[in-house]
Measured scan of single mutants.
Amino acid sequence: TFYNFIMGFQNDNTPFGILAEHVSEDKAFPRLEERHQVIRAYVMSNYTDHQLIETTNRAISLYMANL
C-alpha cells in the first residue's frame, strides 16, 4: 500500500520523511487504501500545508512508477 511505501521514509530528513511522520500520526489516514485517487483526495481534503500536499503528489507518482 501507499502507507507502507511512505513509512519506509520514516526518520529520513527529507520531504518524504516529513510526510511519513505526518501520515504515521494521522489516525484517520487510509492505511489500507491502494487507489492513489482516494489517497490524493484524502490529503487534499485533510491537509492544509501546501508543501505536504506537493510532497504527497510526488510520493504517489514515485509509488505508482514502482508498482
Rank of each mutant, 00 (worst) to 15 (best):
G8S: 13
E25P: 04
F16G: 01
G8F: 08
L67W: 07
V38S: 08
L19W: 02
I6W: 03
G8C: 10
K27I: 11
T14A: 04
P30W: 05
E21F: 13
G17M: 05
S24F: 13
V43C: 07
V43Y: 04
H36V: 14
L32N: 13
G17Y: 03
A28K: 11
A59S: 03
Q37W: 15
E54S: 08
F9K: 02
L62I: 11
T1H: 05
T14V: 03
A20N: 03
Q37R: 07
M64K: 09
E54L: 09
L52G: 00
N66V: 13
R58F: 10
V23F: 12
E33N: 04
L67T: 12
M64V: 13
A41C: 10
F2W: 05
L32A: 11
M44Q: 11
I18V: 12
F16I: 04
E21R: 15
T55D: 04
A28P: 03
E33D: 06
E21N: 15
L52I: 10
D49P: 04
H22D: 02
T48I: 10
M64W: 08
A28T: 14
E25L: 14
T55I: 13
M44C: 08
E34R: 15
M7Q: 07
Q37N: 12
I18F: 11
F29C: 03
L67A: 12
A59H: 04
D26N: 02
T48M: 10
F2P: 00
A41Q: 12
I18L: 13
P30T: 04
N57H: 12
R58S: 11
M7F: 03
I60Y: 06
F5N: 00
E33Q: 05
M7D: 00
I53P: 00
T56G: 06
T55Q: 06
V43W: 02
M7I: 08
P15R: 07
R40M: 14
P30K: 02
D26R: 05
I60N: 00
I39M: 02
K27G: 09
H22V: 14
A65R: 09
L32I: 06
Y3F: 10
R35C: 12
E21W: 14
L52C: 05
N46G: 03
I39D: 00
T1Q: 03
I53F: 05
I60H: 02
Y63Q: 05
R31Q: 07
N66P: 06
